[in-house]
Amino acid sequence: MMDFIRSKGVVWKTPLAAALSWELAEWAGSKHPYLAPLTVILTIQLTVDKSIQFAWQRVMGTIAGVLFTASIAPYVGLNGWSIGLLLLVGALIVTWLRLDHAIMVQVALSILLVLFFQSKMPSYSLDRIRDTVIGAVVALLIHMMIFPPDSVKKAQKKMIHFADHLSNRFINTALWVQEGCSPSEAQTLQTQLQTLFQELHQTTTEIDKAEQSLRYNLLGQKKRYILKKLTRQMHQLRSGYANLADMIRVLVKWSESGYFGNEDQRVWADHLNTLAELIEEWKMELDDPAAYSFTSAASSPQIKAPTHMVNYQYPIALYMNAEQVIQDFQNADFPNKIL
């Protein structure tokens, strides 16, 4: 039950906040208390910062729309043309002030509803402003103070899955090298690499969501510490992906050159498997830092260039990168290119 309450706040927070806001609106004298829970339903989002953003936009748009319409409605009457005219003027003002589109929507809704209800229910304008504020405040207080949304665990799970897939890509690359670097399999590796890149982007997005969810969490100091560590570890995963992509590119070129001998293939298949094992160990530490002690620096694997190649490894790496830049840009397709 507690796990459900913590993880499914959006399920029970909205009904709770809606009920409280209705009662508060009635207590404040509103004749249209449904406007408060309506604001609650619209305000509570998956993250607190999104909720705050929408609450601010709704309150500001409602106040602006109500004041604008209440001051002009007695002079224009109620018909299709007056509605269209006021909506146009309101949209032009919002555009001129360079406000968000969501505010324009709230202004438009307030103009339409106030223009329609003003003559029939004179209290509607005041009720709309007051109840909107009540609903927004109640929604934010409940969302922020009672089990605020936490995306840190979800982000951590995404990172663990990505680390697992990254390790598998190293193993697949080792197998490809061991079996002779088939050109057809090389294309499969590139496709897998693109899929892995998409997953990397999704994992990075999840980290960003976790950061946003903690931005207004007043009691999330421990979670912020965990997220800070996850952010550093995310840099390691990005670096691991970038290095794998570079290694595959170099291995493809090496195999195409005809100088990638059997002994070289054996050595690099072993190296790639060693790197896969290292990532697997790193993933275990990410999964449960308290229960697992990561390999110490003294016992970590060593993969270094042979002594006779030490003086050549850096210029060769630079030449490879320079060649890649040339390939990336020499065939750039520019529309309207002047020759």
Rank of each mutant, 00 (worst) to 15 (best):
R6K: 13
L20A: 10
S21Y: 03
K31Q: 12
Y34L: 15
Q53W: 09
A55D: 00
G61Q: 01
G77D: 04
L78D: 07
G80D: 12
I83L: 13
I93T: 04
V94E: 06
W96D: 08
R98P: 03
D100S: 12
S110C: 05
I111S: 11
F116L: 15
D127N: 09
R130T: 14
G135Q: 03
A139W: 08
M145C: 08
I146P: 08
M159V: 09
A174P: 00
Q178E: 08
G180F: 06
P183I: 04
A186R: 08
A186V: 02
L189R: 06
L193V: 02
Q202A: 15
K209G: 00
A210H: 02
R215D: 11
G220N: 06
G220S: 02
R232F: 10
M234L: 12
R238S: 13
Y241M: 06
N243W: 06
A245W: 00
D246P: 03
Y259Q: 12
D264A: 13
Q265T: 01
A269S: 13
H271N: 10
M284Y: 09
E285V: 13
T295A: 15
S300L: 13
A305P: 09
H308V: 11
H308K: 14
I316H: 05
L318G: 07
F334Y: 08
I338W: 14
L339H: 15
